[in-house]
Design a binder for these strands. Structure first.
Lengths: 269, 269
DNA sequence: TTAAATCGGTTCATATAATGAACCATCGTT
DNA sequence: AACGATGGTTCATTATATGAACCGATTTAA
């Protein structure tokens, strides 16, 4: 392993709960020699990636990270960060995929991609997703800011006869989404279209959008559903990383439970 | 020079005007061997500090910077970043220094520090600075968001007989501040107190606050004024860096002109 | 169509820089 | 005063970084 890598690894030892680390402690955490660790810290400090607190002699993340982070934010559009993951998602599932972003109380379509695999396929032709009727929308209401629930209740347009049209039925969908870490829409926005959606988080740590797969109901087997969920999780992880976010452990747990329980059911059937 | 430093240096080659760089170009910019540069890029990519664009094979800043930048923001308060610079400022000038932050349309006092050098000294005992009467306020109106001018015009309270009480006289002060990159208050907030103020910028690239020196008029000689300005510039650079910002070149130019023309006057007198 | 020039990426003998055990100096406890 | 922490330093040993030359693929020019 290169020495530069070892130096950079030290940065990942900082966290919100441990923002300051002293030399000795860092040696223990990194399981490395004190002299080596010290030199690595010197390098990082000279570059502004960390700084030493004069009083305590501890180290913390440095100001250069703010600059570089801002530059990344300024120069790389979110769309670019979602592109590769969405392509992979579509390829692996053979279904239509799309990514949405939450701005204020509205869920906007960011991009969509269709699979050439089937002649019949879902087409995403909306610019904003109804919160109560789509998988992405349920995902946003369930895992995004609290005021989205009220916003969703403000418009119960019935797109199909399965669309939820009152707060109670919406609440049920939201609860399921919170338990599984994913949103579902079984023919609730368009007949014959089943969608599943996973949340995306950005550098503020908040829900930032959703990545979804829309499949035609006739080929939506349990096997396909399992594949879609698996790939959605992978896509969500990739996009979240690209947007500078971290998947909250509560979501990771929900995913693990959802995938595990489903596999169990499959095995026992 | 350590190889880790060399790798990290590559990051500073990215900028808003050059967000993507290819391998060969990076070699030229960094004046380093191609193989070495390539390996450095590999290390940075593995750490998420840069990423390669699949299509063009160019490199750009990576998502890890967003995460680390946000963590720095979350764990290091602005106050801490201003502390050392303010202490040095007060020591070198022997006068009272203070730092203010702009939040919305209001300029709040963040911290102040008095010099033990003189028994008579300025005391900063306000929590918000009037925009029209203080050096920090003029600085904010001149170099901050445009709507501050209207806000300043909303309250022309006359603290002394020198306080500007109409838009015209305020405009004149603002123009001077824009030309010199600093705000001035010669007995306009408190009699016998002269203040000079330099802007601070944060990671959004915008005016974020001001660092100021308040001196008692009786010892405010041209020599002291020159020292204060020089140290203010140094303090502004330090705090701006700590807050993740960059001094705009327009401000740097204004400072250079202001300092140079004054020195010329001194020499010719 | 060919040939020269670029590009990103790779190889391997050489040279340089990373390493860590042992070492200080300093601090706060016991 | 002896102990066990801390942050920081030294120097012989060793492992890693280095770069000239190379490769294959595109692009450009003749």
């Amino acid at each position: 392993m290169s020495s530069a890598s070892k130096a950079l690894e030290l940065l990942s030892l900082f966290s919100e709960v441990k923002p300051e680390i002293g030399l000795s402690e860092m040696c223990r955490l990194a399981k490395r020699d004190k002299a080596t660790t010290y030199r690595h810290l010197q390098v990082l400090e000279k570059a502004g990636f960390i700084e030493q607190i004069t009083a305590s002699k501890n180290y913390r993340l440095g100001p250069a990270l703010l600059q570089l982070g801002r530059m990344r934010e300024a120069t790389v559009p979110r769309k670019a960060g979602a592109e590769a993951a969405l392509t992979a998602l579509v390829e692996k599932t053979g279904e239509t995929g799309h990514v949405s972003v939450l701005s204020g109380l509205t869920l906007f379509a960011l991009m969509s991609r269709e699979s050439p695999k089937h002649s019949t396929r879902a087409v995403i032709d909306v610019t904003t997703f109804p919160l109560h009727a789509t998988a992405s929308g349920i995902c946003a209401v369930a895992l995004g800011p609290d005021d989205l629930f009220a916003e969703a209740c403000g418009d119960f347009e019935a797109f199909t006869d399965l669309t939820p049209t009152n707060a109670q039925s919406l609440e049920a969908l939201v609860t399921t989404a919170q338990a599984t870490g994913m949103g579902y829409s079984i023919g609730r926005f368009e007949k014959e279209i089943n969608s599943i959606s996973a949340p995306i988080f950005d550098q503020t740590g908040q829900f930032a959008g959703a990545v979804s797969v829309a499949s035609v109901a006739s080929r939506f087997t349990p096997e396909l559903e399992q594949i879609i969920k698996k790939e959605l999780i992978a896509a969500s992880r990739k996009i979240t990383k690209s947007w500078g976010g971290v998947i909250p452990s509560s979501i990771e747990n929900a995913w693990a439970n959802a995938m595990f329980s489903h596999q169990e059911l499959d095995a026992s059937s």
